[in-house]
Structures are given as structure tokens and as C-alpha cells.
Amino acid sequence: MIAAIVDWATIGKVVLYSLLIGVGVATIFGLGVSSAAGLQEALRRRSTGGAVAWALLAAVCVAVAGGAVVIGIVVMSSKS
């Protein structure tokens, strides 16, 4: 009976989107933090190449995480 009442397809979408976006954004931001820490370590070692690589990776991760936040807000507002 409950199976007929509950819209499992929609709940499944909520679960899937939450898992993919939630874990994805947290992972990308975590990679960004790790890269920023790597950048600091490379600067302390005076490793220019390493610093540039870590800086680029950190910037990309922060941009992607920021983009995800903006997309989240846009998706929300488009359903009003």
C-alpha cells in the first residue's frame, strides 16, 4: 500500500541528486583546500612550478564549488 502512495521515483531523484551534488561539491572544495595547503608548502620550499600547479588546481576547485552554489540557487528560483 505504501509503495503505491509514495512517489519513489521522485524520492529516488532527491537521493541521487543529493548524493552526487553533496559529495561532489564537498570533494571538490576539499581538493581546493588541500591544493591551497599544498600551495603554501610549495611557496615555503620556494618551488615555483609546484606553487603554480597547486594555485591553478585550487582556483579551479574554488571556481567549480562556487559555480555549484550559484547553479543551486538558480535551479531553486527557476522552480518558483
Partner: peptide, 23 residues
């Protein structure tokens, strides 16, 4: 619970060898 749990396991794995201050 699942999203936070999976996220924190991945995050700890990624930042485990970094200095704690900047992290």
C-alpha cells in the same frame, strides 16, 4: 548522514598529510 559521512571520509583522505593550520 550518508552524504556527510562519505564526504568527510574523502575529505580526511585528501587533507590527511597537509599541515592542520591552513586546512
Amino acid at each position: 548522514l550518508l552524504v556527510a559521512g562519505i564526504s568527510i571520509v574523502i575529505i580526511y583522505w585528501m587533507v590527511g598529510r597537509r599541515r592542520p593550520g591552513p586546512v
